[in-house]
């Protein structure tokens, strides 16, 4: 049985102009979840609920076995949280911050902190106000990592980082996972980062989770099939076709429930299969959001025809 470090069940939160609707999330201990969504999709609200900073109207949230928000004090001892709106003291040095965090969290690991200083190329005597954006992100990450929290919650950790800093940050995140008892939840708009390091993926759009799965299963379900049709041929109705693009003789099918039997079905109908291509997470995300925005009914219909 896998233990869950983060578990949302039917979580909702209503605001006048925005609502989070029936959010379910399950993140097994020892893995990384990449939480993907456009601006304003509900990523930050979800993270605030996870941290107990915002209280849900309904539904249950369990983090490291603690009910949130009721039990947040106990949960937060073991959570390292880094977000963009987290302020460090501008006039103080990084060394001052390190001492301060160390005085609150007894598990602070000074050797690890020193290692991170070197790898992130940060100088402890430097004042926060003199740091670049990338250095601030790395400083905040160092302060969270060296506490050795069981759960890391990161809001957009790689946004605005140059390629070298991004690589350093991803490497440190993966290094945390060498310990099977540690877990990471991070939000991102960068689907490349998510595709690279996530075990689990959750897509959020307009306050709803539109898809959530193990990454390998997820990428396997989506394919783009390019066909060539003889004149006056119609394709059979295939389950899970979210979009038919291209032209009438050269259609391109985007499928979210791929099965190799579909290729045979197209060939039986007289179509020549030009290619069956895997899709990147970015292409999948865009196709997913657009098909739901364009044809909310059509998508639910195809899903029904599969189960029927």
């Amino acid at each position: 049985m896998t233990h869950l470090s983060v578990h949302f069940t039917g979580v909702s939160k209503r605001y006048p102009h925005f609502s989070l609707d029936d959010i379910d999330l399950a993140l097994p201990t020892g893995s990384i979840m990449g939480f993907v969504g456009a601006n304003g999709a509900g990523k930050s609200t979800t993270i605030r609920i996870l941290m107990g900073l915002v209280h849900q109207d309904s539904g249950s949230v369990e983090v490291l076995g603690h009910a949130m928000p009721a039990d947040q004090a106990a949960a937060k001892r073991d959570i390292g949280f880094v977000s963009e709106d987290m302020r460090l003291y501008e006039a103080a040095t990084l060394a001052w911050h390190m001492k301060f965090i160390q005085s609150i969290f007894p598990r602070w690991d000074q050797r690890y902190a020193d290692n991170l200083l070197r790898r992130f190329d940060l100088k402890p005597q430097q004042k926060i106000k003199g740091l670049s954006h990338g250095q601030r992100v790395k400083a905040a990450l160092l302060l969270a990592l060296a506490r050795r929290p069981r759960l890391l919650v990161l809001d957009e950790p790689t946004t605005g980082l140059d390629p070298v800093a991004r690589r350093e940050v991803l490497a440190e995140l993966m290094a945390v996972l060498i310990d099977e008892q540690r877990t990471i939840f991070f939000s991102s708009q960068n689907t490349l980062d998510v595709e690279q390091i996530s075990d689990q993926i959750a897509f959020i759009d307009r306050g709803r989770i539109i898809d959530s799965a193990n990454k390998e299963i997820f990428l396997d379900r989506w394919r783009r099939i390019r066909l060539m049709l003889p004149p006056d041929t119609t394709l059979p109705r295939l389950p899970g076709v979210v979009e038919v693009g291209g032209s009438s003789r050269l259609p391109v099918l985007t499928i979210n429930q791929f099965d190799p039997a579909m290729v045979a079905a197209c060939q039986d109908a007289g179509a020549a299969v030009q290619s069956v291509d895997a899709m990147t997470l970015e292409e999948i995300f865009v196709a997913n959001v657009q098909s739901r925005r364009d044809h909310p009914v059509a998508v639910s219909e195809t899903t029904e025809s599969v189960t029927a």
Partner: peptide, 10 residues
């Protein structure tokens, strides 16, 4: 996975 910076599941 850590050495390649690629998810464990992959």
């Amino acid at each position: 996975a850590v050495a390649l910076r690629v998810s464990v599941i992959t």
